[in-house]
């Protein structure tokens, strides 16, 4: 039973069936980063998938942007409570990147320039559910929002969508990444409000 907050609710935001529990609509695009913003020159950028056997698949910027890209519009939900609906991106589907990757690992650890990590089950990366995005709203992705390229897994809380991503490491067992180690949920489904450990 919740406590009624006397006189609260007069300034409520517009309700929306697209908002997961506990979220509110943001009209700007808040930035959440645990440290300084890394700036990665495109001629030094690369992205790789390393399997549990150590096999490495790497793309440089030219190779990566030559892959078939998709334009897509999705809702994003940050664990700090804001959601942004109908955001437009361009990027490469993880299905495309995994086409020639042979793996028996069920989990991936995403790694980023700057040292950030986050864990995701492989099945949440495939079947059109995740991308490596490099354009937002028709513009190259700004470094503050994770450019040159970020992981985008819109059906999970946004900390799973690693900014400045530089690779995925396949694992047999699930392991915590950066925020998961600091008390946040291992999976992070916004519709089940899996914000913190134990949710």
């Amino acid at each position: 039973m919740s406590i009624i907050s006397r006189g609260f609710g007069g300034r409520r935001r517009e309700p929306s069936p697209d908002l997961p529990p506990g979220q509110y609509l943001a009209h700007d695009f808040p930035v959440l980063s645990a440290g300084p913003t890394p700036r990665i020159p495109l001629d030094r950028w690369h992205f790789s998938i390393v399997t549990e056997t150590g096999e490495k698949h790497t793309w440089n910027w030219a190779e990566f942007t030559a892959l078939p890209a998709e334009e897509f519009t999705v809702d994003i939900h940050c664990v700090t409570k804001w959601s942004k609906l109908g955001t437009s991106w361009k990027g490469v589907s993880l299905d495309t990147l995994f086409e020639d990757v042979e793996t028996a690992g069920d989990y991936a650890m995403a790694h980023s320039y700057g040292g950030y990590t986050t864990n995701v089950p492989l099945e949440d990366l495939l079947d059109g559910k995740a991308w490596i995005a490099y354009e937002y709203d028709g513009e190259p992705l700004h470094p503050e929002h994770g450019g040159p390229a970020r992981l985008l897994i819109p059906h999970l809380y946004f900390w799973k969508s690693a900014k400045w991503v530089d690779g995925l490491r396949m694992m047999h067992e699930d392991e915590p990444g950066f925020w998961e180690d600091a008390g946040y949920h291992m999976y992070g489904d916004p519709w089940r409000e899996q914000r913190y450990h134990g949710d």
């Binding site: 700007d28 808040p30 930035v31 959440l32 980063s33 440290g35 300084p36 913003t37 040292g115 503050e144």
Partner: peptide, 26 residues
């Protein structure tokens, strides 16, 4: 925060020793 973190990095601080907490958009 963006400005200060960039200054600290430029002054030679290890980015791993710089912890940030931000509010608002870019």
């Amino acid at each position: 925060v963006e400005t200060v973190a960039d200054i600290l990095v430029a002054l030679g601080h290890d980015p791993k020793r710089i912890r940030t907490e931000r509010f608002g958009g870019a």
